[in-house]
Simulated scan of single mutants.
Amino acid sequence: MLNWITNTISSLSYLGIGLLMFLENLFPPIPSELIMPLAGFTVARGQMQFIPAIAAGVLGTVIGALPWYYAGKILGTERLQQLADKYGKWISISSKDITKADRWFDRHGSKAVFFCRLVPGVRTLISLPAGISGMHFHSLGSQKEYAAV
């Protein structure tokens, strides 16, 4: 995996960083914890500029969150519950689990998105309940919510 990430960044430069960060948000096994440090190493060697490398990573990550966000927004709670009841046995999830998660997300969604975006693997999946709840893309919550944190 390390060689593939290194080769992608070397051959595609900023586009490679953006592409890898996009894919990392779709498929959790691709670790951004390798992508961005390698991008930083490339910057330190003088082969890339700092600001465009960061911008490519951020842009790739934001675009990568969109498919999961819109899947949640389009499918909605009821459809996901139906899918869980039909196929959830393969991943040990039921419609009851989705209902409990939905209630929890209604109470803690803004904080959950903020903190879960920092956790590898979870950062991919947190976009789904954000979409289901119709969370605004540009807001992570009010100042009042974070005062309690």
Rank of each mutant, 00 (worst) to 15 (best):
G141M: 11
G64S: 11
D97L: 14
Q47F: 00
M21L: 09
I30V: 08
P28K: 14
M1D: 12
L118S: 14
H138Q: 10
R123M: 04
A53N: 05
A65C: 13
A53M: 05
G64I: 04
S95N: 08
E78L: 08
D106M: 09
F114R: 07
Y146G: 09
S32M: 11
Y146V: 12
E33F: 10
L140G: 10
N25E: 03
P52K: 02
Q49R: 06
S95Q: 02
D102R: 03
F115D: 06
R79M: 13
A71C: 06
T77A: 10
I126A: 09
A130Q: 06
A53L: 04
V122Q: 08
S127H: 03
E24P: 01
A44D: 11
L2N: 04
I74V: 15
I5T: 07
S10M: 10
I126T: 03
I63H: 09
V122W: 04
D97M: 10
L59W: 05
Q49C: 07
L66H: 13
L128K: 00
S127Q: 06
A39H: 01
F41H: 12
I51Y: 08
D85T: 04
C116V: 13
E24F: 01
H138K: 12
I98V: 14
A55V: 03
S32F: 08
L66S: 07
L15M: 15
V119Q: 08
A148N: 07
L128C: 13
S110D: 15
A65P: 02
M48W: 00
T61E: 06
G72Y: 05
I9M: 10
Y14E: 02
V149A: 11
E24S: 11
I30H: 07
K96N: 13
S10H: 12
H138M: 06
I126S: 01
I126P: 06
G18H: 09
L20H: 07
T99F: 07
R79S: 14
P28N: 10
R79F: 11
P37W: 07
N7Q: 15
F114T: 15
L23P: 02
L19T: 08
H136R: 14
V149Q: 08
V58T: 01
D106T: 13
K96G: 11
G88Y: 11
Q82M: 05
L128F: 04
I54T: 05
N25S: 14
I51P: 01
D97N: 15
G64F: 02
Y87T: 03
E33C: 13
G60D: 03
A148C: 01
F137D: 05
L38D: 05
A101E: 00
K86Y: 05
M48Q: 05
T42R: 06
T8Y: 01
I30T: 04
I35E: 01
L15I: 13
I63C: 08
I54N: 01
A71H: 07
M1Q: 13
Q143D: 02
Q47I: 09
F115K: 08
G16W: 10
